[in-house]
């Protein structure tokens, strides 16, 4: 099943890139990262949380780019979309991935 998901996700990235569809590429890219993590025996719960979270943030960012929202709304001095980009794709994965790796380390080492 993971083989099919990975191939499908890669095709989505390829189609998104060739036909200039950011939404398709974002969906495929999150799928590729999730499939690779599962292939590397990462905990499935982590992969599901990561997939939903990243897809949600990317969807918000794409929507905010498309709909030109009110840029006067600021969080910590940054425009809201920039803040959510840095928090959602840069800072939060630090809590999701490396901390899950520490938590799961003994199981992974024994496997």
């Amino acid at each position: 099943m993971r083989f099919g998901f990975l191939v499908g996700s890669l095709i989505l990235v390829l189609v998104g890139g060739l036909f200039e569809s950011s939404w398709t590429m974002a969906l495929g890219g999150v799928g590729v990262l999730s499939c690779l993590a599962i292939w590397g025996s990462a905990p499935r719960r982590l992969v599901v949380v990561f997939g939903i979270w990243t897809a949600g943030i990317l969807a918000y960012l794409l929507w905010s780019g498309d709909s030109a929202p009110d840029t006067t709304m600021k969080l910590l001095g940054l425009p809201a979309p920039a803040f959510w980009m840095l928090l959602g794709i840069w800072v939060v994965p630090l809590l999701i991935w490396p901390l899950s790796f520490i938590r799961d380390f003994d199981r992974w080492k024994r496997q």
Binding site: L94, I96, W97
Partner: peptide
């Protein structure tokens, strides 16, 4: 992506 590539 530097925050998660190490774990991957």
């Amino acid at each position: 992506s530097s925050s998660f590539t190490g774990a991957l």
